[in-house]
């Protein structure tokens, strides 16, 4: 047999083994196990792996478990039906899990909000993987916010930067924002990175305009931002300064 054929056979053998063991379909590999070695050890291997996978998924729902009665059942079903993808991490598996959930059950609006939290956190982390340099640079600038915020009233050429690691989500309910009274069209929440955490902020319409404008024009001077906002909002100077100050305090914008 040529070495190419041998490697092809090896690839087929490992594909069969990995695909089966990933979902604890243990019987499939019993014929591959060395003679004399008990087959229940294959079960120990997969049981340990699936249990770790389930723990990692459960951890992602920490604090939310009481809103998800059937969570353990769904996690168990998911890990036995959907194998972990190559290079998957705990966070990416959780993202896949919450995308899979609505395909097998009808989620309540509250549960949909919870899944949105997991997806949004993951989206911010993935943005971090794609733009590490941007994240590190921005966080360096954020560390100067306390100093530079003072220049808001005196320096029209002060540079304004929007956090590059962010994603928006619209919650259907007040479950996660602690409010019973929420607008019928939902509450817009911005998820963004602060240091190595993911933070959230609820944006009022003016705040949304500010973020959208900065997102459209990119890094700009305070003077240019003001000019741009004049075209789209009726925001007065004092309110703008207040909003920029608030956004800098939470780490959504930075100055240079």
């Amino acid at each position: 047999m040529s070495s190419e054929t041998i490697l092809k056979d090896y690839a087929a053998q490992l594909a069969r083994i990995a695909t089966s063991l990933a979902i604890a379909d243990n019987d499939v590999v019993h014929g591959d196990v060395a003679a004399g070695q008990p087959h229940d050890r294959v079960g120990m291997f997969t049981e340990g792996n699936l249990s770790k996978r389930a723990d990692k998924l459960t951890d992602q729902f920490e604090d939310f478990e009481e809103d998800f009665d059937a969570l353990p059942t769904f996690i168990s079903r998911y890990i036995h039906e959907i194998p972990l993808a190559a290079y998957d991490t705990g966070a990416s598996d959780a993202d896949r899990f919450v995308r899979w959930l609505p395909t097998v059950t009808e989620l309540t609006p509250e549960q949909r909000d919870l899944t949105l939290v997991i997806r949004s956190r993951f989206a911010v982390e993935e943005a971090g993987r794609r733009n590490r340099l941007g994240h590190v640079r921005f966080q360096e600038l954020v560390s100067l916010n306390d100093q530079l915020v003072k220049e808001l009233t005196t320096n029209p050429s002060l540079g304004i930067h929007l956090n590059p690691l962010r994603t928006r989500a619209v919650f259907e309910t007040g479950l996660l924002i602690g409010e019973d009274d929420y607008p019928p069209d939902g509450v817009e929440v911005l998820f963004f990175a602060f240091q190595n955490e993911v933070r959230t902020v609820i944006l009022e319409p003016e705040g949304r305009s500010l973020v959208q404008t900065l997102s459209d024009i990119g890094q700009c001077s305070l003077a240019r931002l003001k000019k741009q906002l004049e075209l789209t909002t009726s925001l007065d100077d004092e309110s703008l300064m207040e909003m920029l100050t608030d956004c800098s305090e939470v780490g959504l914008i930075a100055f240079s």
Binding site: A15, I17, F45, K52, P83
Partner: peptide, 22 residues
């Protein structure tokens, strides 16, 4: 090995390879 191919599946932990030439 923890997975088969690059676009394949991850088992969650490493298993020893078969001790073969391939």
């Amino acid at each position: 090995f923890t997975r088969d191919g690059d676009n394949g599946v991850e088992m969650g932990h490493f298993a020893p390879p078969p001790w073969t030439d391939a």
